[in-house]
Amino acid sequence: MSDDESCELLGFDHVLLPVGDLDEAVGFYGRAGFPVGFRLDEAGIARLVVGGETPGLLLRHEEGTGRRPPARHPVRTWLEVPDARVAAAALEDAGIGLLDGPFPCATGWTVEFADPWGNVVGLTDYTKRPQLGRRP
């Protein structure tokens, strides 16, 4: 990036996850504990709320996006939670299979799951280093 003000990074807008069926995706992420901030069916999008922040996960229906397992080296979206081990139990109780974890990481614990379209989401905590998290 240059010093040009037009290239200044101001923050995240959304993390976009392509999905093959918006209704199914909203239901899947609802079971995983993600509330819907807004839904625009005519545009094929729904924003999932992530904490008190304006950016969120944006589900976007894309034709031809079929069900698939996660890629061998997928892009991962990790979100902070108070306790990833509790989140893992809640995901399993909701019938959402875990890809990995909970496993220890540098800040605490992480658990990962994938949606039916192969998008990988991680839930991570800062239980080992609370001073680095949102709730020190």
Rank of each mutant, 00 (worst) to 15 (best):
G56W: 05
E24M: 06
V50E: 07
V120R: 05
V15H: 09
T127S: 13
T124S: 15
V81E: 00
A94G: 10
P18Q: 11
R47G: 05
T110Y: 05
G52T: 09
E63Y: 02
A32R: 02
L91P: 12
R129Q: 13
T110H: 06
P69K: 01
L48I: 11
R68E: 13
W109E: 10
G27T: 13
V15C: 12
D23W: 02
W78Q: 09
V26T: 15
F28T: 01
T107S: 15
V81Q: 02
G108V: 01
V19E: 05
L98R: 06
E8A: 15
E8R: 12
V120P: 02
Y126D: 04
E62L: 15
R135C: 13
R134S: 15
R68V: 11
K128W: 12
P35Y: 11
V75M: 09
P69L: 02
R31L: 14
L16M: 14
E42N: 03
G133H: 06
T124N: 13
A87H: 04
L9S: 00
F12L: 15
P70D: 08
G118N: 04
W117M: 05
P116G: 03
P18L: 00
V120G: 02
L48F: 10
V121Q: 01
L132I: 10
D83V: 04
R60Q: 14
G66E: 15
P136G: 15
E5S: 15
V36Y: 04
L16A: 09
L59A: 07
A25W: 08
L57V: 14
L132A: 15
W109Q: 03
N119F: 03
D125H: 01
C105L: 07
A43Y: 13
F28L: 03
F38H: 11
G95T: 08
P82G: 01
Y29E: 00
W109A: 00
R134H: 11
E24H: 09
W109M: 03
P55I: 12
A43W: 09
R72N: 13
D13C: 07
G108S: 05
A114S: 11
A114K: 01
E53M: 10
P69I: 01
L99V: 03
V19Y: 04
N119D: 06
G37C: 13
G37T: 08
T65A: 08
R47E: 13
T107A: 06
V19T: 06
F12R: 00
F12E: 07
H73R: 10
F113Y: 12
G51M: 04
D13T: 13
E53Q: 14
P74I: 04
P69N: 01
G56H: 00
G133T: 02
G133Y: 05
Y29I: 00
L123N: 05
D23A: 12
R68C: 13
